[in-house]
């Protein structure tokens, strides 16, 4: 494991990428390790030989011709073709913006529709229905009067029921008397009559 690390460091050192601290550790290791030293020498040899590797050389006239050909090619490229990516990018933004606006508008529309529906339900249940009935009765005063009297009677009836429910005296409830003896009942009746007279 240590030798593998040292061999990696030898490669890093060749590229000038090894820290001073590691260089010292490396040197110390190489002094006593024959195999790593031998590997280092091989790398040195490869490096020297690599410097001698010559790629085919090209003349200056080649570069003049190269530039000339390239210039001719790029001059023939239509401007629209060059805008390809940017246009696509712009369209992408435009599409994103349009979609955002659409969804915001849709959200607002749904929100408003929901509110309106609620109001409509509310109005048609109470004020709305009354308003509509009066619209129909408006042309006939007799019918309107009859409707009003029915409506008032209905309200009065409701009020009476409410009053009865609310103001019922405890002794009017028959269940109140069920658990008393005869003597107790007589006593209570006498007490109630006496109080009513007062």
């Amino acid at each position: 494991m240590r030798h593998k690390k040292i061999q990696k460091w030898l490669s890093d050192r060749k590229d000038g990428e090894l820290s001073e601290k590691r260089k010292k550790i490396l040197e110390m290791h190489l002094e006593r390790c024959v195999s790593c030293r031998s590997y280092g020498e091989d790398l040195e040899r490869i490096s020297e030989e690599t410097e001698r590797v010559k790629l085919p050389e090209v003349s200056s006239s080649y570069w003049e011709d190269f530039t000339h050909r390239l210039k001719a090619k790029i001059s023939s490229i239509p401007e629209e073709e060059r805008k390809g990516k940017e246009l696509l990018l712009r369209w992408r933004w435009a599409l994103a913006a349009a979609l955002s606006i659409f969804f915001v508008a849709l959200g607002l529309l749904l929100h408003n529709t929901q509110d309106k529906t609620f109001q409509e339900v509310y109005l048609s249940s109470f004020e709305g229905s009354l308003y509509e009935i009066y619209q129909h009765l408006g042309s006939d005063p007799e019918l309107e009067e009859a409707f009003n009297s029915i409506l008032l009677a209905s309200i009065a009836e409701n009020v009476e029921i409410d009053r009865m429910n609310t103001y019922l005296d405890f002794y009017e409830d028959r269940h109140f008397w069920e658990n008393f003896s005869e003597e107790e009942i007589d006593f209570l009746e006498a007490a109630i009559r006496k109080e009513e007279k007062l």
């Binding site: 390239l70 790029i74 490229i77 073709e81 060059r82 805008k83 390809g84 990516k85 940017e86």
Partner: peptide, 9 residues
């Protein structure tokens, strides 16, 4: 050629 056509990106 590719660099020229995509330079705007």
């Amino acid at each position: 050629m590719q660099a020229y056509t995509t330079l705007k990106s």
